[in-house]
């Protein structure tokens, strides 16, 4: 098995013996696979989405980190990127899309608006989507640079590799 050779981070996770045999756990192998092929569902509603597009384009190239397979169907994705302002009328749509994603799923709240309403403390704007859906990684900035989004994806990867549960199921595990 070439597992330890292709992924140096996982090398510490596996017990290595002489020859071609390594030992590990099923969970670690699965998480290793999950982490390196996140399929994002973009929810771009405002200017932050422009930076998200730049992140996916050739200059920043999110595919270097295995997350370029953008799906516009929530059924096929496991990483929700909320980038932009969410109004009270849009929130049920976002919630529905989050609910339609299969578990396990992770959420990135990109930018000041998605995370806390930003400068729009107004009658119609949700002051942070985490009031309604569980968020794993927040990105500050208005807008955050593509590097910030890449960093957030890497943090989600770290979280997966460490075996931590997505924020969305933590409450299920407690009870």
């Amino acid at each position: 098995m070439g597992l330890a050779k292709t992924d140096t981070q996982s090398a510490q996770d596996v017990g290595q013996t002489d020859g071609n045999i390594i030992t590990t756990t099923i969970d670690r192998v699965i998480n290793w696979g999950r982490k390196n092929s996140l399929w994002p569902m973009p929810f771009g509603t405002a200017c932050c989405a422009i930076e998200m597009m730049a992140t996916l384009a050739s200059k920043f190239d999110l595919s270097r980190f295995g997350s370029e397979a953008i799906r516009f169907s929530p059924r096929q994705s496991d990483l929700l990127i909320v980038s932009g302002r969410i109004s009270i009328k849009m929130m049920p749509v976002l919630k529905r899309i989050y609910d339609q994603m299969p578990d396990p799923k992770w959420v990135i709240s990109m930018g000041a608006c998605a995370s806390c309403g930003g400068v729009f403390d107004t009658y119609t704007l949700i002051q942070g989507v985490d009031q309604f859906i569980p968020v794993d990684v927040y990105i500050p900035g208005c807008p955050p640079r593509p590097e910030d989004l890449i960093d957030a994806v890497l943090q989600v990867q770290q979280k997966i590799a460490s075996g931590a549960s997505p924020k969305g199921v933590e409450h299920l595990l407690e009870t």
Partner: peptide
């Protein structure tokens, strides 16, 4: 004369009953 932060719509809005 409409208040900038609204009249509590952000809190009272029915997020479940909307037709999505």
């Amino acid at each position: 004369d409409y208040p900038l932060r609204g009249r509590g719509e952000r809190e009272s809005f029915n997020f479940d009953k909307q037709n999505v």
